[in-house]
């Protein structure tokens, strides 16, 4: 269970270009469910996701994760939290060019110090799950859009995280791939993962798999509900 209590985020505080991105956000994200942060561009969805995922700290307010306050954790622990608890799927997918799919997938697990053979076996298993085992040695820049998306998801799953965070996951996908992605999310939900997505794509927030929708506008929650 992730609880946000009075979270605000102000960029360039005290300067002329001060910008309030989030104001007094308080939400509860239940475990093993799919929650969508819905809102137009610039509403603060990505900022909220990065605060939930421990990538940035709120200017004020608190985030607790399974009862543990995480906003004041030192950087080293935040890194470990990102690595062990969250799996990230970025809007641009953010794979590292020039190295193989397999290496890209294993990257988040390198700091764990796990045995290489075990890690590789797990990465290959994930590749098989997404039908990419034959392309393990291929460099990522040679992949199609759909393949890049699946590699990004496989990378997010390598450390078997409790929570998957996806920022506009369908922004660069056509409708067919978007539907495919939502099917994968459904499978992950069935596996017991908590999924948090930011999107303004109806294919995402209208999908049957979604349990909760949090609507954000101008950095504030405008509506929080369960879809009909």
């Amino acid at each position: 269970m992730i609880i946000l209590n009075g979270v605000s985020k102000i960029f360039n505080q005290g300067q002329q270009n001060q910008f309030v991105s989030l104001q007094d956000i308080s939400i509860t994200i239940p475990p093993r469910q799919v929650t969508v942060l819905k809102g137009p561009s610039g509403s603060g969805k990505t900022t909220l996701l990065s605060i939930i995922g421990g990538m940035s700290r709120p200017t004020s307010g608190r985030v607790t994760m399974n009862g543990r306050e995480v906003t004041s954790l030192p950087e080293r622990f935040l890194s470990a939290l990102r690595r062990e608890t969250f799996g990230f799927i970025f809007q641009q997918f953010n794979l590292i060019n020039g190295i193989s799919i397999l290496e890209n997938i294993m990257l988040p697990a390198y700091p764990n110090g796990e045995r290489h053979t075990l890690l590789k076996a797990r990465a290959l298993e994930l590749l098989a799950m997404f039908g990419l085992e034959a392309r393990a040695a291929t460099r990522v820049e040679l992949l199609s859009g759909g393949e890049v998306q699946r590699v990004a998801i496989a990378r997010a799953l390598i450390n078997n995280p409790e929570v998957i965070i996806a920022d506009e996951p369908t922004a660069h996908l056509d409708s067919k791939l978007s539907v495919e992605l939502m099917a994968i999310m459904e499978r992950l939900k069935a596996d017991g993962k908590t999924i948090i997505m930011a999107s303004h794509d109806p294919l995402v927030y209208d999908a049957g798999v979604v349990d909760n929708i949090v609507e954000i506008r101008d950095g504030r929650i405008s509506c929080s509900n369960r879809p009909q």
Binding site: R76, A80, R83, E84, F88, I96, L107, P111, R155
Partner: peptide, 15 residues
């Protein structure tokens, strides 16, 4: 950009 990605996916500054 790569350093940013590594940090985001859980690498520590020390790593």
């Amino acid at each position: 950009r790569e350093i940013g990605i590594l940090k985001a996916i859980g690498w520590d500054v020390a790593d």
